[in-house]
Each structure stands twice: as C-alpha cells, then as structure tokens.
Design a protein around this nucleic acid. Structure first.
Lengths: 197, 197
DNA sequence: ACCTCCTTACTCGATTCCGAGTATTTTCGA
DNA sequence: TCGAAAATACTCGGAATCGAGTAAGGAGGT
C-alpha cells in the first residue's frame, strides 16, 4: 500500500511544507516555485489538488479553515496531522538511508544502444558530451550566483550532488565514445552483425 | 503528444524487441527478463498488454498472425511497422543525445534534509554509505561473473554507467557526512533554528 | 472607458498505470 | 501415480496522472 502511496514525491513535498506551517494549496504551489523545488523534485502542479485530497483522505493532513476573498474561489488551509509528521520523517528517512534503484532514461538508452548504427551512436554521444559541458558551465554560473546571494550551502546540496553525477556522466560518456571510435570496445563484431539485418 | 507517449520506457523496449523480429507479448516479457532489462529500464509487466495495444492503435506495430496452442489463450504476434522503426530510432537518438532532467529520489531527499534533525541525518547518511559500499562490492562480483560468461562489454555498458554514478554518490555522501559532523557546512545555525519549531 | 494581457486559483476528463488476481498447464519429487 | 509447486499467459478495476482549459480579478496602456 504505502509503496504505491509513496510513489508521488509531490506528496512528500506537501508534507514537508505543512511541517513548517499551515497553508492552502495555492500557497504550496507558489512556495515550491519560489524555492525552485521543481529542479530537484519531480512536481506536477496539475496533480496538486488531487494529491492534497488523497493526503486528507489518509488522515495525514487536516483542513483547518476555509478562507474566502471576495468572489474568488475558496481556499482551504491545511495543517499536518501527527500521523502526517510521522509519515514524512519515516518516508524521508528511508529515502536518505536506503539507496533505491533509480532508473535514468540514459541508462535505458545505453542498454538499447545496439539498435543504432555505431557511427550514429558516436555522433549522438558526442552531442551529449557537448551538451553536458554546456550544462556544467551553466551550473558553475548558477553556483556563483548562489554564492553572491549568500545562499548557504546547506540549501544547495541537492544541486551539488546533481552536478557531481553529471560530471561523472560526462567522463563516462567521453571514454565510451573513444572506445567505440577506436573499435576497442569488446563486442563490436556483434554490433555490426546485429545491424546487418 | 509524443512527450506523453514517450513517457513509458516499456514502449521503447517493445519497439526495440520487434525491431529484431516479430514476437507475441508473452515472448517479449520472457525475452526482457532473460536479458535482465528490468535492471536498466523501468518495466512493469502488468502494463505490457496495454502498452502493446496503444502502440498498435498508433500504427507503430501491427498484428501479424494469431497463434493458438491447444486450449491455451491465443497469442497475437506483432511486427514493427516502418513508422515504428522511425519512432524507435528517433526516440532512442533523443535519449542518447539530449541529457534530460533526471529526477532521483535521493536528490529530492537531499533538498528536504533540513526536515530531519542533524544527528539523525548523519546517522541515516552513514547507513546509506555502508549500503552503497555493499552494493558496489556486489556489483564487482557481478562484473566478474559477466567476465567469466564472456558477456562482451558492449552488452554491459549500462551497468558500468550505473556503477560509476553510484561510486560518485558514495564519495559525495561521505564528504557530506564529514561536513555535517564537523559542523563545517555553511547553514548549520539555520538548520538548528528550523528544527526548534 | 475600453481593451488586452497577466496572474490567480483552481478543474476536468481522457489516458495510463499497476498490483493483485486467475485459470490452465507442466514439472517433479515422494 | 498423485499432489504440490512452479510456470504460463494473460485480465481487470480502481487509482493516479497530466496537460490543457477556465473564469475571475487586476494592471497598464490609449
């Protein structure tokens, strides 16, 4: 049950916000945007209201009051319940302590690489390399910006982590390109053969 | 349209299989299992039949014949259509050439780390470190196994890539633990303050 | 006074997803 | 040779998802 429930990280983000203070859904959305959480958490604001509803159904959050501002739609302010705080800390703890399987698109693509012609694969991988280089350069700019705005590192670790991974990816892909180019990668005959059909 | 369509990697895997030769759905499932694609591609065999149906609706694959074996259920053999081959190569090319945003659970967790008490965070991160060490040790074992079975490296690159990322993660988390322990990470006061409420 | 665009604050329905279930057949030990 | 377990080959319903849409209010220009 909870494995399915815990699949949507928007629910985690909502619990984390309400752990700070009560809010209505629209405020959650703007706060998440302000803090640029979309960069590190997979959020789809279209599902915010249904996620909040489902958290309420499960008793993890409770509707506290209904505000009304002129003829604007009502805004329901939610607060976290005790069970919600427990769920948040438990969920977060698990995410931190247990390295789960993370599926990246690129890993999937690598595992299907033989579908492409070797020359094509090299071309595309090289394109990836240069895009990664651009991304890393842009990230350096962002880091400097964060430094100037005196954003403490604690609030930037997720970005650091992402950059570290990207750098590793860049190195890995560069090495791979070289090996395919020089045909030193083991299995090259197999690849050509597979391409013939 | 295609962005939604291209969200399920099982569809990509199906196209890749049919690019080799025609198959019926159950054979796709067994072939994918044999090749351990679940390790590198996020597959849910429960959605296989609906994914195949949707590919057929879109004209990317076509039903070729219906086999029957005694009283067993019918098995429809599908083949890839030309448009399907185009879609496969195009999709795969994009995945290879364009580094898309990949959301990992751990990155989300890092961005919410201040919800946990610093001491608790250290404990959990250390647990992660030791689990990552175990995983990497096990992966070494697997690699040796693959070497003995003479699996050419070409068919193992996705695993190599994943291991490279995990190694970087291990290093990053180890460094982070040290910094939190020694309280040298910038923003420690903020963290304690946030915890007080 | 009017028009237009932007922001606010949601809503909705068509798809997609997924875990659990099912019914038959084969294998294999005792 | 019998029964239990495993494998085969799907099926299904309810929940989740997501992009696109919407309607009202306010800001700014002419």
């Amino acid at each position: 049950m909870s494995s399915r429930q815990r699949s949507n990280p928007l629910a985690l983000a909502v619990l984390a916000l309400l752990y700070e203070r009560p809010m209505h859904p629209y405020e959650m959305a703007t706060t998440l945007r302000e803090r640029r959480k979309e960069d590190s958490i997979k959020l789809n604001y279209g599902s915010l209201y249904s996620v909040v509803q489902s958290l309420e159904r499960r008793g993890l959050i409770v509707a506290k009051e209904v505000q009304r501002d002129g003829t604007r739609p009502e805004r329901t302010v939610y607060a976290i319940a005790e069970s919600g705080a427990v769920e948040l800390l438990d969920w977060l703890s698990e995410l931190v302590a247990v390295p789960g399987k993370e599926f990246t698109q690129f890993e999937a693509a690598l595992s299907l690489l033989p579908c492409l012609r070797p020359e094509e694969a090299v071309r595309l991988l090289e394109e990836r390399v240069s895009r990664l280089e651009e991304e890393l350069a842009a990230a350096d700019g962002l880091r400097e910006h964060a430094f100037k705005r005196k954003l403490p590192r604690l609030l930037w670790i997720e970005g650091e982590y992402r950059i570290a991974l990207r750098r590793t990816e860049l190195e890995y892909v560069s090495a791979l390109v070289r090996e395919i180019r020089e045909e030193t990668i083991e299995g090259m005959e197999l690849w050509r053969e597979f391409q013939k059909q």
